[in-house]
Nucleic acid binder design. Structure first.
Lengths: 209, 209
DNA sequence: TAGATTGTTAATCGATTAACAATC
DNA sequence: TAGATTGTTAATCGATTAACAATC
């Protein structure tokens, strides 16, 4: 069904999902590539190409069923299963992620945090346990996460990733400001906040030319 | 000096900066496109093309001066000035950003937060004031931020952006999970955390095929 | 000078846009 | 049937890679 999907398309999938969900909430049941394109800031052509990466979902002369298309993308992204997340680093960012209700609603459940700071340990954030980092390996077997979130200082990121790989973890959501090295059968997605802020700065700087 | 710079290059600038800074810290003073490429996962060709977007920084037979190149990119990104940030929404994400020391070090200083929740108001996070959202417009003149951070529910994001535009703000760092509409002379950079997590999910799902 | 490596032009590759026949 | 809009092929555009003469 779905062969090779380019990175460009993959990066747009969440936006498709977001817009289709909104449309559905607004009671829209059907939409053309023209309308969806206007809404998302893409050409109708690109919308059709993107959607056809996964197979025929439209009907000529009519458009796309909002609900069906949304559900399909939902499934493609693997959002029909639950994910268990462990957050390593219980600083402000780690805790913000742990407690953001939006993730849980989408099936991403934080099951525990880890930290090296003895002050933070035990001090559960809204019923979530914070364990000492040294118990990480030991507890992973029980916790059974499929995703680990790196919300720790950059110096500790690579060694932690290596350890997690040994422990069988294959999905990493990295907030540390480093480019990590990892085996081909591991997936790492970065959230480089400083990079994002620097891009904003660049664009503000080169605005008025 | 620098004419049109493609988005692809702009998105790589922070990574260049990051790697050059690391190299400098490690005492490396000179580097070839070959070596830098290996380190960053880019081809030497691409490194040279990217750097030459801004003008000749290398020396044939030798390579690039790490310090000079780093400084130049620093300047290009506008990191040689200070930025004043106001954060709208003093929830966990807003507060995490407000207190992340890494931004201040780079010249991005949070000067205040705003929130609609009376419980949060006044309750300063490490010496930062939290003002009621209704005073936003009133206080912006004094606060003089150039960047506003949207860390509020998606329902309030668009109307807040519109108001900020009216108040003369031209830089928005948006954490709300929506695609905002904005005038051409405004710069908006998104951090769509859910999108990022969904991409991770997609890639884990399509890993073993 | 000889060797190395840039700056830059040309070739390739991939992604986006345009066009249009197929069909609901 | 006529009109609309898809699915898909072809054209275009832009970004990446390769090649090599210039030069440190």
């Amino acid at each position: 069904m779905s062969g090779y999907v380019s990175d460009a398309v993959i990066r747009r999938l969440p936006a498709y999902y977001r817009h289709l969900r909104e449309l559905e909430n607004d009671g829209v049941t059907q939409i053309s590539s023209q309308e969806l394109g206007e809404r998302m800031g893409l050409t109708p052509s690109q919308i059709r190409q993107d959607i056809n990466t996964f197979g025929g979902f439209g009907r000529q002369g009519y458009g796309y069923q909002v609900h069906d298309l949304k559900e399909h993308i939902h499934k493609i992204m693997g959002l029909d299963r639950d994910h268990r997340m462990v957050i390593i680093g219980a600083g402000r960012i780690g805790q913000a992620i742990a407690n953001y209700a939006g993730f849980a609603v989408q099936g991403f459940h934080t099951v525990a945090l880890f930290d090296i700071d003895p002050v933070k340990i035990g001090q559960s954030t809204e019923a979530l346990p914070i364990y000492p980092a040294e118990e990480l390996l030991l507890r992973l077997a029980d916790l059974q996460p499929d995703i680990c979130v790196l919300a720790l200082p950059k110096e500790a990121a690579q060694q932690t990733l290596d350890l997690l790989y040994q422990a069988g973890i294959r999905g990493i959501w990295n907030f540390a400001p480093v480019d990590l090295h990892f085996p081909r059968d591991m997936v790492v997605v970065n959230v480089h906040l400083s990079d994002s802020l620097q891009i904003l700065s660049y664009q503000m700087n080169h605005q008025k030319e």
